[in-house]
Design a protein around this nucleic acid. Sequence first.
DNA 1: AACTCCCTCAACCGCCAAACT
DNA 2: GAGTTTGGCGGTTGAGGGAGT
Length: 300
Amino acid sequence: MGRQPCCDKVGLKKGPWTAEEDKKLINFILTHGQCCWRAVPKLAGLLRCGKSCRLRWTNYLRPDLKRGLLSEYEEKMVIDLHAQLGNRWSKIASHLPGRTDNEIKNHWNTHIKKKLKKMGIDPLTHKPLVTNNDNTTDQQPPQAAQTHPQESTDPEPTLSSSTNDASSQTDHNKVDLESPPTVTESKEEERSTLDDAMEAINSFLCSDDVPLIDPSEILVPSSSSSSSSYSTSPSSSWEDNNIFENLHLPFMDWPPGDFCEDNNSNDDFGFWKDEDFSWDMLINADPVLDQTSASYTGLL
DNA sequence: AACTCCCTCAACCGCCAAACT
DNA sequence: GAGTTTGGCGGTTGAGGGAGT
């Protein structure tokens, strides 16, 4: 029967987004919220596929995104979650507030994979690349090469509440996959349990000579002088006309209570209730933005 | 300075599943 | 229940920039 394309591709623009396009998209979403991505380009006056708009928003324009390299903490979470979930980047991303699946996927492919390989760990299986006779494929690898903190002696370092039993690795995976913690209830628990786990993970990861991320890179991710953090966007819209950056938007976790997640979906979308911490506030904080997009003011 | 190679990451593509009619 | 639409996901690509020579 032939599936319809997601949009009429004739005359649609592809490739890097321009600052002007970003403004239009932001403007539209500020006004109308997120719905009907298919209709967004038309209504927003963009010559883009709806899918492209959604991706641009999700991966780049969302105000709750953290920017810059993943912190050491986040990186370890990714490794741990990948060991449990595999290449389910969106699931992994759901445990890392402010990070997108695309970002994590990229970071995995460009950084973590190499690190693990350098450590002698298969990034796919999280097991030693050199097979150990004492630990066959289905058995636990030596602890010294484990990326699974829950497989170490440190109990329950991950998000799962049912993986204390170090003897049931398969169960551990199964449980996590079938009943992942909800976003709302897991975050605090996540932090505390993972804090506990960090030491165990560190004992493994930090023992390697692989250079870890310099904390200064994390603390100053938006600096234009930072060569490695989102400064290579072909669109140059962030670099040259970064609305949020110009607003001095802090790299913070948005107040959970103020961000209302859409209960009908498990994605990251939602809206902020707190009028004291709104787009309007951010927008009005920047005179440059008023110059470039007068329609931002007074939208909310 | 000029060139090549390599790395990074934003964006695209195709597929899938849920929602809708 | 079948067909269609839509949103979302994961894999892949390629432009841009940095490093090395």
